[in-house]
């Protein structure tokens, strides 16, 4: 009896003689999914803080409701499906924040809540969770809101102008179309309905744009976020550079102001934070470049040749759908296969 008891005890105790085994490599990089998502959120914090400073309480409400909708929906769905709860990896929070940045600042609180929930439910969880979705979840949420309540989505723009950026003469010349975004104003100007120069918008678009979505308040802060992501080597430089570059070159060819085209609308935010979403863009460097150029072309086509003033959202969603095709055809040439290998 005593012997049996002893062996049972010994079995429970970890054997001191033995070591852990496991396959190599025995050391790993520090980056994890949650640390990457955390860094992307950190890169967005300056922009978010500035937008709250400009937009005030209504902006804050939209951001909080959107994040709450996304995280809450992920929690409820995973609980309901008896899957491990993964809200701690911060990807749902990032989706919620990105969605909020693409929304107008004066929405009623229930819209970002629904948008966040739809982003996670229809954008991510129906495909099987993180890593399996085809479309960018935040943009799925925005597209849903845009199509369902387009009246709110296009008229809740106006914010308090920042005095040192937007001078009175600019305000006066834009007064006729108080709630219009710069892109809408420019498309009116192209038709001859308005007399306004694109260069007047440069300064507000960079440092304090009162007409547009929450995330469009400052191009400079988006670029700051991009620099953070690039120095941490979290995203590939090809996507923002090729996307914005394509839009600028095509605008120049068409005859629009290229700098205005790059700064206006959601282009910078989309190119730096939406198109670079890991899950929904191609895996290879060349694939990423093709993806970004495609986004640029679709954006310009929508902006100049359709009745919508803005095309970033649909261009990225469109190219997300083409990503599997790009991945199928663009593959790296393996070492020792094909040209360059045989010649001695």
């Amino acid at each position: 009896m005593a012997d049996n008891k002893k062996t049972a005890e010994e079995k429970r105790r970890p054997p001191e003689e033995l070591f852990h085994i496991g396959v190599s490599p025995h050391v790993r990089d520090r980056d994890t999914t949650s640390s990457i998502m955390g860094w992307v959120i950190a890169a967005l914090i300056p922009l978010t803080a500035y937008s709250i400073y400009i937009g005030g309480l209504s902006t804050l409400t939209v951001i909080i409701c959107s994040i709450a909708g996304a995280v809450g929906c992920e929690f409820v769905l995973q609980r309901f499906m008896h899957k491990p709860i993964t809200i701690h990896d911060l990807s749902a929070a990032l989706t919620g924040l990105l969605l909020a940045l693409t929304l107008p600042p004066r929405l009623p609180f229930w819209m970002p809540l629904i948008g966040g929930a739809v982003a996670i439910a229809l954008g991510k969880q129906v495909f099987g969770g993180l890593g399996h979705n085809i479309f960018n979840p935040a943009l799925v949420g925005r597209a849903f809101l845009f199509i369902s309540w387009s009246k709110y989505m296009t008229t809740s723009y106006l914010q308090k102008p920042v005095a040192w950026v937007v001078n009175t003469s600019t305000i006066k010349s834009i007064n006729a179309i108080t709630s219009a975004t710069p892109l809408f104003a420019m498309s009116e100007a192209r038709k001859g309905a308005l007399d306004i120069q694109a260069s007047k918008y440069y300064l507000p678009l960079l440092f304090g744009n009162p007409w547009g979505c929450i995330g469009e308040v400052s191009g400079a802060l988006i670029i700051l976020g991009l620099i953070i992501l690039l120095t941490k080597r979290l995203i590939d430089w090809r996507i923002p550079v090729c996307y914005v570059g394509t839009v600028m070159i095509l605008s120049l060819i068409i005859g629009a102001d290229p700098v205005f085209s790059a700064l206006a609308g959601g282009l910078l935010l989309g190119a730096c934070f939406m198109a670079t979403d890991y899950v929904t863009n191609p895996m290879t460097s060349w694939g990423k470049a093709i993806f970004a150029v495609g986004c640029g072309i679709v954006t310009v086509v929508i902006r100049f040749y359709s009745h919508l003033p803005e095309g970033v959202m649909f261009s990225i969603l469109f190219m997300n759908g083409i990503t599997p095709v790009i991945d199928r055809f663009i593959k790296p040439r393996p070492y020792g296969v094909g040209k360059g290998s045989a010649k001695a």
Partner: peptide, 14 residues
Amino acid sequence: IRCGRCVRYCPMNL
């Protein structure tokens, strides 16, 4: 999560 790091860092281009 399809970040593509393994493709970027693979010395054999796999």
